[in-house]
Nucleic acid binder design. Structure first.
Lengths: 208, 208
DNA sequence: GGATGTGAATGTCTTCACAGCT
DNA sequence: AGCTGTGAAGACATTCACATCC
């Protein structure tokens, strides 16, 4: 299989969202031009992205919204729910754990962990904060696929090592730290400070 | 001035963080190879990135940690503090507002807004949640440079239009929506669902 | 007619490799 | 010797443009 760039995958996620919006308005078909307009890209880009996986459109017609929804869901692996755990029940972890939007998109939060005794046992929306020591066992029992790391930077590498040892193969890291993961484990970072610094750069350089 | 890619700016932010860590350990100099190792890139990449802005190193020696810190701070526009406002005092907004790390890096949160009467007047760490109606005036009075949008997707475009009208030229959007901003305004998105879907893709495709 | 799918052309970013300082 | 700075080469991503098909 061809190598797919991260930016292409990001765009597919966006197209998926636009398709859901279009479906909600009852649209039957959608053109590459319309997807491009919403995504701030070009129609050629949209067609190239989709052509990496197949030929889903009808010439002269565009794409069937329902069909393309199904295809992109399948490409992105969203045909079955994923099991997610949140490590760190601070403000950020609690915000993420309570995001009902995730469930709607097939990411089921199965557990929340924290090391702070004061937080353990608290419950948010059906989830009880579990102690650190229960982590390894629970990750396996719940067949957790994706771990969200929302702990302080100093603790992040230790956490990721443990979740990887417990069989988790995908990690979304919110800690401002560059983590090491073994081959076969996928890591993505959300680094708010980095984004702010990017905005700072744009401000002083007058770039749009 | 040359066009600098977003990925180059991201890497500069990372180098800055590594330099701060190195400075904390008392290191005097650092090589491109060492920065590359920490950042998961190559030494040639590091040198190219830095060479876009000048020649900061000494051959055979590497870079002076203190000097390079100063240069990168200057490049990124971090020599003066930026004024930040958070719009949306839900769980995510509250988590972001209380991130003390931002202040340390020169991003001063000057105001938090919400439309919900139940939240207005609550105070978090010296900040009082202000009502929606006070937003336009306060953004100008506080000379806010950067707005963080942490409201539901449906409300996000309205919010960004208002902050832009109030003179804000940089926006960090956490809402899962693609926002339109006029030329001259920089927008960055943090889209957690997108990241999760990217991990899902990696899981089903066995990519590391 | 109208929009897709795709080789070819272009543009951008990364890596190579080596001359040039220290 | 060691490490930077940088043209040149290579890899990768985007855009063009048009034949193809509904």
């Amino acid at each position: 299989m061809k190598k797919i760039s991260e930016s292409a995958v990001r765009r597919l996620s966006l197209y998926l969202r636009f398709l859901q919006e279009a479906a909600a308005t009852g649209a039957e078909t959608i053109s590459s031009g319309e997807l491009a307009r919403r995504g701030g890209t070009t129609s050629a880009q949209v067609r190239k992205d989709l052509s990496l996986f197949g030929s889903f459109g009808k010439r002269g017609m565009g794409y069937s919204v329902r069909e393309l929804l199904r295809e992109i869901r399948s490409i992105l692996g969203l045909t079955r729910p994923w099991h997610v755990a949140v490590v760190g029940a601070g403000r950020l972890g609690s915000a993420l754990s309570s995001f009902r939007d995730f469930e709607a998109r097939g990411f089921d939060i199965r557990a929340v962990f924290d090391a702070d005794p004061a937080k353990i046992g608290q419950s948010w929306g059906g989830l009880t904060v579990l102690p650190d020591e229960a982590m390894d066992r629970t990750l396996r029992e719940q067949n957790v696929d994706i771990a969200i790391v929302a702990v302080p930077a100093e603790a992040a590498q230790g956490v990721v090592d443990r979740v990887v040892a417990a069989g988790v193969r995908a990690v979304l890291n919110f800690a401002p730290a560059r983590l090491r993961v073994p081959r076969g484990v996928t890591l993505r970072n959300v680094d708010v400070t980095l984004e702010l610094e990017g905005l700072s750069f744009a401000l002083v350089n007058g770039k749009a």
